[in-house]
Simulated assay, not measured.
Amino acid sequence: MTRFEVIEADITTLDVDAIVNAANGQLLPGGGVCGAIHRTAGPELAEACTSLAPCPTGEVRATPGFRLPARFVIHAVGPVWQGGTAGEDRQLAACYRAAIAEAAQLGAASIAFPAISTGIYGYPPEQAARVAVTAVREAAHRHPAVARVVFACFGQDSARLHREALEVLH
């Protein structure tokens, strides 16, 4: 049975097998969580990403973690919010499901997620938390080898929204 946790933390410091990067389609270093992951992992991460790009919205690519505590970085490209009528929920759920499947394929027993698409991509945080938690729970049932899922939230509001979404699904 998969254990789900919500914590306020810098995802780059977590002792998990894999962390998920809220990546852009070209897998380039960016701002927010993506920039922090690239800075901590070192320049080798950007080099590794070059051969894996582009990555379409809703899909993932995996690289080593390099200088991160995590062995792997799973780069997930979330949707840009366009008002909710362009399939954003479906695309966001696909990111989370694909990341769990990739973690299982890599042999990762633990994974940490940021709140994908809620920064510069403008996804409403409350809706994103519900989509994330629902998709991860579904995917974890299909991939029981992923025994621990951490929602690493940047701030109290995001943590509260993820906790509430988990409670609703219990």
Rank of each mutant, 00 (worst) to 15 (best):
A98C: 13
A101D: 11
A98W: 06
R39C: 08
F4W: 08
V149M: 05
T13D: 15
N24Q: 10
A48V: 00
V20T: 07
L68H: 04
T12V: 11
A145T: 12
T2Y: 08
V131F: 03
P124H: 09
L27C: 07
P29D: 03
R137K: 15
S110R: 06
A159C: 14
L28E: 08
L14H: 10
A99L: 03
A62F: 08
A99T: 04
F4E: 06
N21Y: 12
Q91K: 13
N21D: 15
D15Y: 10
A48H: 01
V6G: 10
V136P: 08
R137D: 08
D89M: 10
T118S: 02
V80N: 05
Y96G: 06
A22D: 00
I19Y: 08
V131R: 01
S117C: 09
L52S: 03
F4V: 02
V33G: 01
N24I: 06
A93V: 09
G42W: 05
A165E: 05
A159K: 14
T2P: 15
A129Q: 06
L166Y: 00
G30H: 07
A104V: 05
C153T: 00
G58W: 05
R148E: 11
G84S: 02
H170K: 12
H170S: 13
A108I: 09
W81S: 01
C55F: 12
I74L: 14
V16R: 02
F113D: 00
D10S: 12
C95D: 07
Y96S: 14
L27K: 02
Q127N: 05
R3A: 15
T85N: 15
A41P: 00
A62I: 06
T13Y: 09
N24R: 07
S158N: 14
R67N: 15
G30A: 11
F66K: 11
G35S: 11
V80I: 15
Y123G: 00
V60H: 07
I120N: 09
A9N: 13
Y96Q: 13
H75L: 10
A94G: 09
T13W: 09
V33K: 01
E5A: 10
V133L: 11
T63A: 02
I7N: 13
H141M: 14
G155I: 10
R160I: 08
E88G: 06
G78Q: 01
R67G: 06
H141V: 15
L161V: 09
T63K: 01
A132F: 05
L14D: 07
R97D: 04
R71Y: 07
T12I: 06
T40P: 06
I19V: 15
A22S: 05
V146A: 08
H170F: 08
R160K: 15
T40V: 12
G35A: 12
